[in-house]
Design a binder for these strands. Structure first.
Lengths: 205, 205, 205, 205
DNA sequence: CATGAATGAGCTTTCATTCAT
DNA sequence: CATGAATGAAAGCTCATTCAT
């Protein structure tokens, strides 16, 4: 991997065949990343699994980094899609209900392709992608969560947002890595911790 | 990386010069891991940074994996040293005090070389090191924490131990990665979350 | 050299350029083997002498062993081509004439690239190639010679075939290594020995 | 292996301990050669098996080649010892009896450590050792065999000596490699071939 | 003299990337 | 545009050899 490289795709094709090829390549890359990890992800491997030639891959991605950056971008968009509705709805609720709603969406998000998710998170800082450049809506949800917390009078809302996100991600990933499948059970254990962080009394009380 | 490889060092030298070389190599490996990540860790790079020849490196480590395994082993020993005292002391306390004591030790532990720590954690499952083989005291602390939780009547103590560990690690790493330095502040935010998880009333109450 | 490795080529190209490259690599390998022996045969050396890059070599041969295995396979095919006609023809002759015919073909065979031949023979057991896998016609000639000897009432035809083959190879290689070029002369000296082995009276008698 | 190297030992020690070390190293080298082949013969391996340090090895042998050259020299001396008596005795016999006597000695010689023998033969031309330099008595037996053949009126005695030697070696090695152990049986099959070569009538006649 | 830690050239192999077809 | 043969820097690792102790 070269040190200074472009992180944006070479062409953004809108025609059918090209579009299908690009999708195939990204899907292939995601699958390899999920199943075999980043060390096993090679451009030749991606092209082969996608059913295109290596030359075609380099028509659309100037280098390996770009493929990964695009996967990160899509992951962020997925995050946006998974969370946006819940965060919007939460604005009309009280803190306890809002927390439950956002927490549920967050767990749902972390539960899809957790291995891929972890790999992409690591990549995120390695690629030091420009937030705005990569995904316009990326940080939007983050900002809205901050605002949400602020509206409930939480002190240091940025820190709280980051803390809760990290705390949630850490526990969900660990549970999934350990073989747990019941998201509701994970949520039930995580909820009191988040309530505790926010200074809310436990549910039963 | 070959699939089946030895994970134990080749020689364990006791003379001064050799011992210094081995330490230099491990330190170099840890630094590269911390600063540039696992993908950038090469045997040639480790040897160069350690100021020894590549041949010398292979006198003491039969392969790259072994270096990483030794780092993991030392990390586990560090974990043991950092936590053992706190866990022992916690046995004589009530749940609230015990939690505070262990939490503090845990944060201290995660705060040393957090990047290295994250990399080593990922390596741990990649190398699938034999728990007992690598570090006799490795899982001891984990087991004692489980027992501690059990003694306080916490349901599913294994799950709780894993949850709390992951939750704690996630938040501490995120805070440190974000540039926070004040461990006490981090601890102050983390404590209510842990209390919440354990069903304890918030401190002020 | 790893212990368990593939022994079959990676791609079998049919286009002109690739085909030429593969031939060039095999020729280069054979030449190095012939002139400087197996210890001097390196993949880099083969690629350089063939005028291709090391990367290209590994496009067609997954490892060093495979190159050698392919040379052995070709040597066996050459053996088949050199001997098959003579052995077929010998079936209609008496023992004396049959022996002369096969002996002549055998000497012809051993005379082409005798050094290469010796190296490849040594490789044959090192690589423990699967007879059938490597060359369908490989052992066919051997079996036919055994049958031929059997048809003439020779006791222990397998042993006799191996003895005569070894005896012939030994003498021809030694003569060629000593600088002799006149194959007819070598044959004239070898013939009475073979006749003697088979219990035939000397020619002049 | 450097290209131009000395082929004579560095010191020829007569004292007890040194002499024992040298013997141990040569024995170790011979064993490795016999069992695992030349590719597995490393100077470090020889030293280790001999129970001496690598530094000591280089006190007595300036390089790897020299060890091999010394093994070749000893092999030749062994040949001398194995054959000299038989060749001397043969001078007083008729051709048939002389042939039997020398043949028997020759087979005996080839039967000791045949794998080692083959490896050393290959080394002989690789090292292109100077006949006289390496072993004074080396060619003596060869010359005496030539004289013996000459005394019986055999035409081209040098060629005949080389032919018979190669023919004999080829067949014996093949038989041993094939798992045969009965030297008498091998001799019984080889004898008529040699008689045939020399123009003698078969034994039964 | 014996030791063995240290050296580094050189080997096998991989993989991101280019470019002629 | 698509292809895939070709490239070569760079990685992991070995082993003959030296030299300070």
């Amino acid at each position: 991997m070269a040190r200074i490289v472009a992180l944006t795709p070479r062409k953004t094709p809108r025609q059918g065949r090209s579009r299908a090829s690009v999708e195939a390549m990204l899907t292939a890359a995601a699958q390899i990343l999920e199943v075999r990890g980043i060390a096993a992800l090679t451009t030749n491997g991606v092209a082969e699994r996608a059913g295109v030639s290596i030359g075609t891959l380099y028509q659309y991605f100037p280098n390996k980094e770009t493929i990964l950056a695009e996967l990160v971008r899509r992951q962020k968009m997925q995050f946006f899609e998974d969370m946006f509705g819940a965060v919007q709805a939460a604005k009309a609720m009280d803190l306890r209900r809002a927390t439950e709603t956002v927490l549920q969406a967050s767990i749902q998000h972390h539960a899809r392709a957790p291995e891929l998710s972890r790999e992409l998170e690591k990549l995120e800082d390695m690629l030091d992608v420009d937030e705005e450049d990569i995904c316009a809506g990326g940080g939007l949800v983050d900002r809205q969560i901050v605002e949400l917390l602020e509206s409930f009078g939480i002190a240091q809302p940025e820190t709280a947002a980051r803390d809760l996100s990290a705390l949630c991600r850490g526990m969900v990933h660990a549970a999934l890595a350990d073989g747990e499948c019941d998201l509701a059970a994970i949520e039930a254990r995580l909820r009191p911790a988040v309530f505790g962080y926010l200074g809310l009394a436990p549910e039963g009380a």
